[in-house]
Each structure stands twice: as structure tokens, then as C-alpha cells.
Design a protein around this nucleic acid. Sequence first.
DNA 1: GGTTAGCACTCATCAAAGGAGAGTGCTAAC
DNA 2: GTTAGCACTCTCCTTTGATGAGTGCTAACC
Lengths: 347, 347
Amino acid sequence: MDLDERKYKILQAIIDDYIATAIPVGSRTISRKEGMGLSSATIRNEMSDLEELGYLASPHTSAGRIPSYRAYRLYVDQLMRVSSLPVTEYTNLKRMFTSRMGQMEDILLTATQALSELTEYTSVMIAPSVHTIKRVQLVPITENTALMVTVTGETIHKDTVIRIPDGVSPDQLYMLSNLLTQRIAGKSLSELPEIFASLSEELSGQQSLFQQMMDSLQKQLKPDARSLHVAGAAKMLKHPEYSDMGRARNLLSSLEEQEKMANLLMQHSGMEFSVAIGPELSDTGMQDCSLVTVSYKVGDGIGTMGVIGPTRMQYGRVLSVLDAMKNVMNEALLSQKGLPGENEEQT
Amino acid sequence: MDLDERKYKILQAIIDDYIATAIPVGSRTISRKEGMGLSSATIRNEMSDLEELGYLASPHTSAGRIPSYRAYRLYVDQLMRVSSLPVTEYTNLKRMFTSRMGQMEDILLTATQALSELTEYTSVMIAPSVHTIKRVQLVPITENTALMVTVTGETIHKDTVIRIPDGVSPDQLYMLSNLLTQRIAGKSLSELPEIFASLSEELSGQQSLFQQMMDSLQKQLKPDARSLHVAGAAKMLKHPEYSDMGRARNLLSSLEEQEKMANLLMQHSGMEFSVAIGPELSDTGMQDCSLVTVSYKVGDGIGTMGVIGPTRMQYGRVLSVLDAMKNVMNEALLSQKGLPGENEEQT
DNA sequence: GGTTAGCACTCATCAAAGGAGAGTGCTAAC
DNA sequence: GTTAGCACTCTCCTTTGATGAGTGCTAACC
């Protein structure tokens, strides 16, 4: 079952070649490769073995071989070399984030677009989900409505409209906000129910208001589809595997289903790196794609970004780009706090 | 130069047919149409005239004719009949908005998706831009930063992170917010500079803080690319005009350029309806598309939504869908305020 | 004079046929 | 174990011819 040294080498050469060209690779192509030193006939025999082992497949009798999903799995796990991103590219990337970057949203948007530009594939990103709250404040809108602003980190905040019972003044809302903030700050989602329970005893008569606040807090702490960014979907059409219209449309439709995509990414959340190949994505309708993801941290929140491409993906390149992006984003998010002297890590 | 009754009728029949089928229409097809009562030969003569007048073109000698951009212009301006949306579809549409709709964002998202579903084209939407402010509030985040929340309407609000000078307490921020709100509420962008001038005299020493707030207010009042929604881009691939990969990619890339799209929509902002056909869109890289837009109002803000499709677009249908959507959105946004009894119009 | 039937002509589209090229599998020799 | 050689397979491309839709023109018709 195990492959010997030579088979590994040949398989790697085949995959490398196929990733680069997208055309089935023949025995002669490999035998002519630098450092191979074997005739095409020998390669042919080895290829035949590899096919039997399930690593290669031939589209038809007299085409070359193409790697199977299994081969890509092996490639990613063992054969691939991941070089770090060239310095020039890395500095370019960094520069994109040092210009007038404002909000979290801007950073995510820029990162998503850059990811797609650098890889020539589609990129997806979900904003970090957060689990503790720093501050809650009610901002009056009309007599009977207020905006509930939740600050969950230096850079992340969300809002919902809340209905206010009659006869509650703006100043009362302010007091309430302060009280709530005091009790809630630093607590996690699971602790909220007790806090609310004790609070509503203290401040009885405001049940409906509390209930609303509780509900929206819970909603806000869950990562939602709205925090999903997708960039470079059109880039997929560049790759020959999507010259078939039906396939292309399928893929693009999947990418547009924000909920689905967000869930998919969430599944990989927290994993430092992860690579899902072809059939491993079958429940998402993207059977002939691969998804490479990395997670990044912002404060105590974890976000995930990924690159979607054909199974014949430049895994090595994509991984190095993602790794670089993770670093650059971290730096950007740290410096973005606007608090020189408070940065926890190196600049 | 003017066309007689019969030419109008024939041209209309040709355009209708071409819009429905996307294949060049021949003289026989038209002559067989109900209520035409002319032989193919006669139609042929008329078509020949129409071609000379620039309303028709033939892809090659023995294909039928296809309408020119000029013909579509004429069609939209004079020939087309816009029926209002069938009642069943309208009620379906309404139902989508009556379920648990929360924020403005949700409504926009739903509307954009529905628009694309109903028309089978791509839809775009920008959130209403606003010109007066109802309330400003600073919410402390850390020692040195605060979130500036601006409420500009019952449903619209934006936020930016602001840097706070040392030694300003949360309560001071609250006071400041109230003072600012008092002075600013109901004023428009152009009046802001004076207000700030007089305020900064009163509260000297807080120049940098004021400057920041001023800057972000101005930024917030401008509609930005971030408020753009696009839905159903993949739908374009369904239409035969985009079976050519290069063309399809061009279009999809354009759709991804949020800034460009937002600007394009802004150009049509305020117009009740507008239709831009083919070459009229040439500066956007979508020469062979058409864009139909309508504007909708939310409070004193005006938003714009549109549908992008091939020049061979079902203009009548699209217009009626957009009109219906405008109404439904208005209702949704009114009822969404959560203030029964305060609705300015019928429910 | 407008309308129509008839006919020659044009051109895209489709299917069939044949050649070229790439690649394989097998066999026999090294 | 490795390699050269060769027959064989199958896709891809081009050519060819048939089909059919549609036009433009002319001459006849009302």
C-alpha cells in the first residue's frame, strides 16, 4: 500500500504539472523533467501502478493522467512545499493596510479583496465572533425606540433597534446602560441569563425591555451571515474547469448563498489551517472545489478567512498567502486601535 | 424620419419577440403573428426600411433582424406597455417583508434578493442617503476611544471610532453628546460648519475631538460603497448573451467593483424611474447591458435600487417589479418603525 | 401604388468523415 | 529493473456537404 520514494516523486511531479497547466499529464512530460532521469516507459509503468492505487485517473485511453482527490490529499498532507511569501509581495500587502484604514469593516473588505487578487481565486471571510461584552448603551431614536449599541472589543460593535416602553427618559436610558454595562462587562454569553435574572428582580417592571435586550445580545454574539465578505467570484471564470456554463453558474450561486457560506466557514473556525478538498465539500454543492482556510484572532474573537478554488489549486501558494494575510491583519488590527503604548505585541 | 403606425406596430412585434427568444426574428415570424394580417414579403419591405432608419440590424445576410439600441430606446419611451404586477405576485412579495424583519439592513437585503428572484436579472441597491441628523452619541470603548453613533432616521444609523483626549470621563462624553444633539438635530450637512464653529468657541480645548466628529459626520452623510447590495449576479449566466466567457467575466467583474456600481446608481438617484440602455452605460464597462432604476424614500433620505440585465431586457416586467418593490419597501420601512399610530400613510 | 407570390441566393448550423497528434499498454531486448 | 519500439485508442481539428431559415428582387395582382 505504501508508496516508495520514486512513486512519491513521480506523483508530485504529476500534480505540480497538472496544477500548473490543467491538462492531463503524459508520461513523456514527466520523463523529460529535470532530475527525473527515467524514460517515459518506466514512468508509464509507475503511473499505471499509481492509477491502480487510486491516486491517478485517466479521462480516456489516450489522454494523460489527472490526480484524484486522494492524490491532492496526499499532496497537501505530505508532498507540498509551502514557502513563505516573497518579501516584496509581503511588503506590498502590508502597505495596503497602512494607508487610511478606519473601521474593522474596511480592514476585512481590503483583506478579502487582496486575498483574491493575490491568489486569483475567490476569497471569503467572516468577521471575528465575540464572546464577551465590554459595554452596552442605549441611544434614543424616537420617543419609543432606542438603538442598542454593543461594544464587544476595541474594533467590533453591533447595533439593534429596541422598543422602549412609554415614559422612559433618555437620561434613564443612560443610567440603565451604565448599570447594565457594569454588570455585564467581561461576561460571556452563557452567564447572561443569571445576570438578567438578578437584574430584572432589582428593576422589576421593565421586563419587556430586558427581554428585548437579552434577545438581541444573544443574536449579536452569534456570527451571522451579514458579516460575510466574498471577493473575486468572477475570478473563477478564468480557470478552465469552469468554462462549462452550468458548472460556473452552480458555483457562483453557491457563493451567493451567504448563509451557507458563513456556515461552511464557521465549521473551520478555530483551526489554525484547514484544507477541504473536493468531495469533502460535497454537502455545500461545491464538490469540485477546494477550500483552504485560516483563522485569525482579534482580541478574544476568532475570525476565519479562506480561499475557494478548483481542486487543482495552488495549495502551496494559497497557504503562504493566507499565512501572510493573517499576520498583516493582526498588525493592522492592533495598530488600528489607535492606542500607542497599549499594544500587547510587537508592532 | 417619423414612423407611421404600421412601422411602429411591426417594430414593437420584433422587439417583443426578440426580448422573449433572443434569436434574430425573421419576416415570417412577424407575419404569422395574431392581428398582423400582412404577408412576410410586406413585412420584409418594412423591415428593410426600419433597418435603414437605424432601428434594426441584421447579424448577417440570412439571419433575421435584431433591434438596435435606438429601437430599445424607442420601445422604452413609447411602445412598451407597463402592466402592474399581478396581485398574487404582489401579495407574495409583501409577505416576504412582513415576517420577522428587523433592521434596515435586513430589509435592503431581502429586497435586493427578491428583486433578483422576480426578474431573473441581477439587482443592485444602495441604502438611503440622509441629509439631516437626529442624534449623535459617543459611546466609550476604551480609555482613549469612543464609538460615535449617529442616528439619522428611525431606521438609519452609522458609527465610527473616534479618539478621545486624555481625561475625558464617560459622563462628560454623555453630556457632550447631549449638547451636540441639541444643536445639531434637524440640521443639514451644509449647516454643520457654523454650528461647529460656534460650539468650539464655547468649548475650547476640545478642538481635535470636534474636528474628528465633524469629519466623520461628513463622511457618514455621504452614501458610500459599503451600503451597496448586489444580488443574483450568477443569474446573468442564464441569459444566452453571456454564454461567451470573456463577456460574462467582464460583467461579473464590473458588478464586483462596489465603488463603481455605487456611483453608477447614485447618478440615477432621485429620478423616479430611469432606464439606461447599452451605450448609455459605456463608461461603466457594461456596454451591452441595460440598467433600470427607481428611487425610494425613507424619511428624508433617498435610496436607489436597480436591475441590470442584457439590453434585451423585459423592460415592462422589470419596471412593474421595481414599482411594486418600491411600494412594498415603503410599507415595510414605515411599519418597521414599531410605532403603531404614527404611520403617515395607509398600512 | 401598395401588397403579395415566387424564386434565386446567402449564410449559419449540424453531422459525418478523415487526418494528425498525443498517449497508452504491451512485448522484447538490454 | 529499465528502455525502445510499435500497434492501438481516442480526442481534436478541419473539411465537406446537406439543411433550412431568411433575405432581396421581380413580376403579377387587386
